[in-house]
């Protein structure tokens, strides 16, 4: 089998195997923290950080970790990095850390991260694993950014805290609430399905 060019591993995460829109992984933080674009971006970056670091470590140790305890080891590795990220955010951006709340620790059980370790990092070389993790992380962040932008613009009339809607615009508060998150994500997934089908035919 001919090996794909390494850059392919990065690009696939952006759209073809986008963790949120196509693989439907890591939906809990996607929905929960995307009230504002800032939060969405922070969550994306944090998750990417954890993903890249743990992929690095897992890929490095892939021949060392015994098969029976691999899942447990992955979880410990991930949990460690999550703790680091959590403390970092709490120290430097306490505002964001507060608004993300327990969803930072919940990155541990984000099935996207564990899924990448199990499906990719534990089977591939370091470079490829890093590219894959970066791609997935970027795809995740991108999806979060779009979702949180839509919700923030409609729900609060702002984008990254800047007023961008016209003065008489009355905000759709529902977009900041759970129903708005579900409906927006539903539409995004549907749009992705639609575009993908268009591309195939």
């Amino acid at each position: 089998m001919k090996e794909k060019p390494a850059i392919q591993e990065f690009i696939k995460g952006l759209w073809d195997e986008n963790p949120v829109l196509v693989q439907l992984l890591g939906l809990c933080p996607t929905l929960a923290v995307t009230v504002s674009a800032e939060n969405g971006l922070a969550m994306g970056v944090a998750a990417t950080f954890v993903l890249v670091c743990s992929s690095f470590l897992v890929s490095l140790l892939r021949n060392v970790i015994p098969n029976q305890v691999r899942i447990a080891s992955y979880i410990v590795i991930i949990a460690t990095f999550v703790t680091i990220a959590d403390r970092f955010l709490a120290a430097y951006t306490p505002e964001i850390s507060k608004s993300l709340g327990p969803f930072i620790p919940l990155i541990i059980v984000n099935c996207m991260i564990l899924g990448r370790q199990e499906a990719f990092a534990s089977k591939n070389k370091l470079g490829r694993s890093l590219l894959d993790a970066l791609g997935m992380g970027a795809g995740f962040t991108l999806a979060l950014l779009v979702l949180s932008s839509v919700r923030e613009v409609l729900g609060s009339g702002t984008w990254f805290g800047m007023d961008i809607m016209w003065a008489s615009f009355s905000t759709w508060k529902v977009m900041s609430l759970p129903p708005g998150a579900f409906l927006t994500l539903g539409c995004m997934i549907a749009a992705a399905n639609w575009i993908n089908r268009r591309r195939q035919t």
Binding site: S170, T171, W172, K173, V174, M175, L177, P179, G180
Partner: peptide, 11 residues
Amino acid sequence: RAFLQASFPVK
């Protein structure tokens, strides 16, 4: 109606 209620609770 529920969408509007959640969006514009005052109006």
